[in-house]
Design a protein around this nucleic acid. Structure first.
Length: 564
DNA sequence: CAGTAGCCTG
DNA sequence: CAGGCTACTG
């Protein structure tokens, strides 16, 4: 028989697609509880993401003043750089785009200053900072932990504070403020909090200085003396101070101004200001590191370009790149790339890829029996060439998964063979993005991807059994009296429902074995329900036991220790 | 006790 | 699909 479930129980392809695409296109600000969601989504660096979001206005001033970070010699020093879009330029474009996007977004809604890809980029940059801060080369472990915990502590406080504010009804908050204003103790506690904030800010500044120094140490040898001078002259030290009128400016040294008199006059505003400054300092430091790395990578690109063997195919080069990357560790990832890793060509303008690749790895095509399909879902609409990438096009899950399967989680995504060349190698900016990725992948990545995969498998499995139960009940309701009348073919509704879920675009041929196992599962459910075993809360466990024995072998790649 | 599977929920 | 919770297991 051909099981036909009630219409409402079937996923309609169009609905699913629309929903998916909506989800992909939806700006973060339109999502439920975006504030909290964004805080939790980058669990490695939720604090900084949160803080950075508040500093978007500052970004523009940095962009306008970008000579601050760009040594003139790095732009004019190479004739090759002059003949094509330089990374410096692309970085500027990037930030300009960022700025203009931000302003568009802000004008549309002041509540949603950041697009998803910008957030993703930031998350990666933050990852770098964390990675660098935890690099084993200099600071002691205890020191690093100390510094990190300072960041985390501050983040938690800000987060809690914001949570508290969100929870307080507005009138209550106003009352609270009014009461506090008349309470002498409140001033004292505020003063105390300001003091704490100052301390935290100073700690942050120390941390950021360490970061900068570390960065300089790592790259000084590759910079020319003139660059050094230019940078110093241009004030690459990330200095922030607070003016007496509570505006923030870059200064020649690290200061926390807005002294005691201001504190006494308006402790609350100072408190807010300190938080603001702290977030700004973090943001600027992140930007600085990003820009400096961009410059360095750009300065290296002429060598990298010359190094490519012309007779090698792109595929071979990519494979080679991926393999060489696989063996590199965090330190090599943050250091200038070996010559074979990157190639810059002038043929792609930065707008082809001005954003970092998404680190978000989504659903691989997987059958519920535990085996991963090696087919690739279309990451693009049918009418669109796979190589007409826009910067907002996410790297498809299955590409990433395939790459992970092939090269392991330590490999860089730039080795993915189906990546467009603009994304893969040529865009100087994408080189930066990829290096960010490679670093981010090394920093907590294994655990993340593993747990996420486990969760996906769990969800898929769950969906499979839900469908099986549903269709078994449907068969019973339809009066099927013999289990032998139930079969699963490619025309069966149950198969269509599953296929719609796991293999929406029919990218791979579902193996016959899947049909067999699905049929057995259906029979088991039918029998169990027929015998009223479903009155037992754990009645499904017996079925799970039977079916899991029919599972395909877990691919060897997943058994690798690199997935632990 | 940490890690994991399974269930529930949004 | 993902997060939270609970029960189970080594």
């Amino acid at each position: 028989m051909n099981l036909t479930p009630p219409d409402q129980s079937i996923h309609k392809p169009n609905e699913v697609c629309v929903e998916d695409s909506k989800a992909d296109l939806m700006l973060p600000c339109f999502r439920r509880d975006m504030y909290e969601e964004s805080l939790s989504s980058y669990h490695s660096a939720p604090l900084i993401s949160h803080l950075l979001r508040k500093t978007i206005h500052n970004k523009r001033s940095i962009i306008n003043n970008n000579q601050l970070y760009m040594p003139a010699s790095s732009i004019a020093g190479s004739s090759m750089l002059e003949s094509r879009p330089t990374l410096t330029e692309s970085a500027q474009d990037d930030w300009s785009n960022l700025s203009s996007k931000d302003s568009q977004l802000e004008s549309a809604s002041p509540e949603c200053p950041l697009s998803e890809h910008v957030q993703a980029k930031r998350a990666r940059v933050e990852n770098i900072i964390r990675g660098m801060a935890s690099s084993p080369s200099d600071k002691s472990h205890a020191e690093r932990e100390n510094a990190e915990s300072e960041v985390s502590r501050y983040g938690r406080e800000v987060y809690k504070e914001n949570k508290r504010k969100q929870k307080l009804p507005q009138h209550q908050e106003h009352n609270h403020a009014a009461i506090s204003a008349s309470n002498n103790d409140a001033n004292a506690s505020r003063e105390e909090e300001c003091h704490k904030l100052r301390k935290q800010l100073q700690s942050m500044q120390r941390l950021l200085h360490q970061l900068q120094e570390k960065f300089l140490q790592m790259y000084d040898h590759s910079n020319t003396e003139s660059e050094e001078k230019g940078e110093q002259k241009d004030g690459h030290e990330l200095d922030v101070s607070v003016n007496s009128d509570n505006t923030l400016e870059n200064k020649d040294s690290w200061k926390v101004a807005g002294g005691c008199s201001s504190l006494q006059r308006d402790q609350k505003s100072l408190q807010e200001m300190l938080k603001y400054e702290l977030s700004r300092a973090i943001s600027e430091s992140v930007d600085l590191v990003f820009r400096r790395l961009s410059v360095i990578l750009e300065n290296q690109s002429p060598q990298l370009h010359l190094c490519q063997s012309p007779e090698r195919t792109n595929m071979e080069k990519q494979e080679q790149q991926a393999c060489s990357r696989e063996t590199s560790d965090l330190e090599t990832a943050t250091k200038p790339r070996p010559a074979e890793c990157y190639e810059s060509t002038p043929s792609h303008s930065p707008e082809h890829q001005t954003e970092a690749l998404s680190l978000v790895v989504r659903k691989p095509p997987l059958n519920p029996l535990g085996s991963v399909s090696h087919a690739v879902k279309r990451p693009y609409p049918l009418h669109q060439s796979p190589f007409q990438f826009s910067h907002s096009t996410p790297l498809h899950d299955s590409q990433i998964l395939q790459h992970l399967l092939k090269y392991g989680p330590h490999a860089n995504f730039s080795g993915i063979s189906c990546l467009p060349t603009s994304l893969d190698r040529s865009s100087t900016d994408s080189s930066v993005a990829l290096s960010w990725d490679s670093i981010a992948m090394r920093s907590k990545f294994n655990r993340c991807i593993t747990s996420q995969l486990i969760k996906w498998f769990s969800n898929f499995r769950e969906f499979y059994y839900i469908q099986m139960e549903k269709f078994a009940r449907q068969a019973i309701m339809d009066g099927v009296s013999d289990v032998k009348d139930i079969s699963v073919t490619r025309d069966s509704e149950v198969f269509r429902a599953l296929n719609m879920h796991y293999n929406k675009a029919n990218d791979f041929q579902v193996p016959e074995r899947f049909l067999e196992v699905a049929e057995i599962t259906l029979h088991e459910f039918y029998n169990a329900i027929s015998l009223s075993k479903d009155s037992d809360p754990s009645w499904k466990k017996a079925i799970y036991k039977i079916i899991c024995k029919l599972d395909s072998e877990v691919p060897d790649q997943f058994k690798s220790s690199s997935y632990m």
